[in-house]
């Protein structure tokens, strides 16, 4: 579906956003996770044909998006939700979707209207569809962004940090919507929120400092942290600096810490099952010059 080969992007000759990335993405839901500034958005923007790589090739369904013609072909099968979606404040939600739909090539008026109505219902904006976008809340704008990305039944859906600004209920609903879409097309979900990946992706890559440092199933990432996750209860003192504290829970008999690393025997640490977040943090620690 998507083949990324030796992809690099350098800004101004000095900032290396991506360094020789190779990826092969099949149908389904693919998660791209990494810290802020890791290069996720740069990779997403290259896949969407918005920017050109410095070196390397990207093929989307056989179309080379580094060429003008290939980029145009790829755009006709693409749905894209940028990290910061802009809207025309004086158009209504329905009008905005109608506008984007015809630009995506949905020319049949009846089909377009039906598709817009269906999508407004699926993102629960049918009630406010005829209100101007400037009156929408942040979450509503995000949902209209999701709806526009789904217009035209894209074969590839790229969503960049989609759950930022959504409340927990909306986040769950949004993840479910993406999972449904993944049965019909390839969905690439870029996020720094590991929870989003753990609930929806069966294939993921972790990117850090412009390089892919992990590629596999969520279970494989979890396995990496197995034997390194501990629960420590103290009377308040924080575990030593060699450990990465994942969470802190105030208990009636002290403070319970969930830590990663190798605790000293004095702590009476209890080994616990790692989560995907543990696996991610463990991986980042292994690739970080200084301990987290």
């Amino acid at each position: 579906m998507i083949e990324v080969t030796n992809l690099s992007k350098t800004y101004g000759g000095a900032v290396h956003a991506l360094r020789g990335i190779d990826l092969d993405i099949k149908n389904g839901m693919f998660g791209l996770v990494g810290p802020n500034g890791a290069g996720k958005t740069t990779l997403m923007r290259i896949l969407a044909g918005l920017i050109r790589p410095t070196t390397g090739t990207v093929r989307v369904l056989g179309h080379d998006v580094t060429t003008l013609q290939g980029k145009f072909e790829a755009k006709s099968i693409l749905g894209y939700l940028p990290q910061e979606l802009g809207l025309y404040p004086n158009l209504t939600g329905r009008e905005f979707l109608d506008y984007i739909a015809i630009l995506k090539g949905v020319t049949d008026k009846r089909a377009r209207r039906q598709q817009v109505t269906d999508l407004l219902e699926s993102v629960r904006l049918a009630d406010v569809a005829d209100r101007r976008l400037k009156t929408y809340s942040g979450g509503m704008k995000r949902r209209i962004g999701v709806a526009q990305a789904l217009l035209g039944s894209p074969k590839l859906l790229i969503v960049d940090e989609p759950t930022v600004g959504l409340d927990p209920e909306e986040r769950v609903r949004f993840r479910n919507l993406l999972s449904e879409m993944a049965s019909r097309c390839t969905v690439i979900l870029s996020t720094h929120i590991v929870e989003d990946i753990s609930h929806s992706c069966n294939d993921l890559a972790v990117i850090s400092q412009g390089q892919v440092i992990f590629r596999g199933a969520p279970g494989d990432l979890i396995t990496q942290a197995r034997g390194h996750v501990w629960s420590i209860t103290t009377q308040g003192e924080r575990p030593n600096s060699g450990l990465a504290v994942v969470s802190t829970l105030q208990m009636h008999d002290g403070v319970q810490y969930r830590v990663l690393g190798t605790p000293e025997p004095d702590y009476n640490a209890v080994s616990i099952e790692p989560s995907l977040e543990d696996g991610y943090i463990w991986l980042m620690r292994q690739h970080s010059p200084t301990p987290a």
């Binding site: 969407a48 044909g49 918005l50 145009f72 755009k75 006709s76 693409l78 894209y80 940028p82 910061e84 979606l85 802009g86 809207l87 025309y88 404040p89 984007i100 630009l103 995506k104 090539g105 526009q148």
Partner: peptide, 14 residues
Amino acid sequence: QFGVRELLDTLPVS
């Protein structure tokens, strides 16, 4: 300025 340009650039329209 509204941030719509990026979205338009991903659509199959010149």
